[in-house]
Design a binder for these strands. Structure first.
Lengths: 251, 251
DNA sequence: GCGATCAGCGGCACG
DNA sequence: CGTGCCGTTGATCGC
């Protein structure tokens, strides 16, 4: 397929929300939040009609070397080459792809559904944990939220057997500096509202040495919790209740 | 091309480090850091021989719905379908893609070079700013970083006209909570080492209201600096030195 | 629309 | 290798 025909077909594909694939010699320029130039070379251009996003891929990496989402896409011929322009505003950005030669063009009708089911998100783990707080510590109970703490910010808000407030931050992977400073922010936040002793607790499958140091210096606690995906399960030496795991479930 | 031939061709493509493209009806399962299931539907599978990475794309979004890098990829037939397995360890992960029908298969020889030139990274902006500190404040001078802090942690370490240490954190976009807590960590770190007055300064094109609040409460300063990409240029009312911008340069 | 946070973050650079 | 942190972060959810 020659370049000008590919241009018409691409226009058509975008119109009808198809997925278009182009492979060929091209160069790419980008202006926007940053700026970049990609000299001439063979690449894959993906135009997704489902949401007018566009990516330029090389033969390595998961992420595209150039991309734009919610783009206004247009084609033109220029000096015998195929010029594909993608533009958007907010933020103002522009991509120009110039194909000097095309090795492959194809467009596919696609279904629009996005029905990935993901297990083991932080929210899932956190919710599951909130229902089993006594596993963390006897007498630990979730507390009713109000006002500014109503939702979203603090992962879990609890109360221990001595009526202290416990601010809990859950991480699905190894906790780092950022996790600790987040917890610190939330604890400070709660201190301003509640006139009670506030404990800060970080729950994660692991924590970096330096983050643990900082956590301790702030007087907070770390609880090591190994997650079997979709079911939180504490890794406490010798004490292990057997539960079906998501890995087994999916088998 | 039928499924079994596609399997052989894919194996061949991986062997010879080609870029392989498959479009067809498939379902995807993933086990690893999390777990996911993607029911049967038409999708695009990208296998990049350059680094043995693999992505499954739908007709929306920049990011693939499933993916793996540095994978060990294998093909097999199973109940008349094409089963593509991707595995890796560290972390242990597995993807199974089952193609029930194939609408398209193609593999491309690709060059291995990755020669994107990017302008406007934080490091570039920070370096450029470090050479023009007097623009921020008269008498502000960079101080040799070696021996004071592990290099790379603090964006810029400077000294003002009164011999105070100024810890500077640069952000290429709107600064948020994280930027402030980062700065706070660095300032704390420097305080322990230097027995001098330490100023903390955040330089960014914008800052969220709440982050500014927190910044002030910590006694730090915010300097609004609008960046013309690749050339930092302060947006101070009335005071503007004209310089060619990267946008003009790339024109 | 902006703000805040998660992500199977990915990717990179330094120790 | 791990640790930290940037990213044209992207994607999501609540306000």
């Amino acid at each position: 397929m020659d370049l000008s025909e590919a241009g018409r077909e691409l226009k058509n594909a975008v119109q009808s929300k198809k997925l278009a694939i182009l492979v060929g010699e091209c160069e790419v320029k980008y202006w926007g939040r940053a700026a970049s130039r990609l000299p001439r070379g063979k690449r894959l251009l993906l135009v997704k009609g489902g949401d007018n996003s566009l990516s330029i891929h090389q033969n390595t990496k998961i992420r595209p070397v150039n991309y734009m989402m919610d783009a206004v896409i247009s084609c033109a011929e220029k000096d015998g080459a195929l010029l594909i322009r993608a533009e958007k505003r907010k933020p103002a950005e522009k991509i120009e792809v110039v194909f000097h030669s095309l090795e492959h063009f194809k467009a596919f009708e696609m279904e629009g559904k996005n029905d990935l089911r993901l297990f083991g998100s932080e929210k899932e783990l956190s919710d599951s944990l909130a229902e089993n707080l006594s596993f963390i510590e006897p007498g630990l109970k979730p507390v009713k939220r109000e006002g500014i703490l109503r939702k979203g910010i603090v992962d879990i808000l609890a109360e221990d057997k001595d009526n202290n407030i416990v601010v809990i931050e859950v991480k699905r992977r190894q906790a780092d500096f950022n996790a600790v400073t987040q917890l610190a922010r939330y604890v400070e936040h709660v201190r301003k509202i509640k006139d009670r002793k506030i404990r800060g607790m970080l729950i994660a499958p692991a924590i970096t040495e330096t983050a643990l140091e900082m956590l301790k210096s702030l007087g907070f606690e770390f609880f090591n919790l190994e997650f079997e995906i979709s079911n939180p399960k504490a890794k406490i030496k010798g004490l292990e209740k057997r539960q079906p795991t998501i890995n087994e479930f999916l088998k």
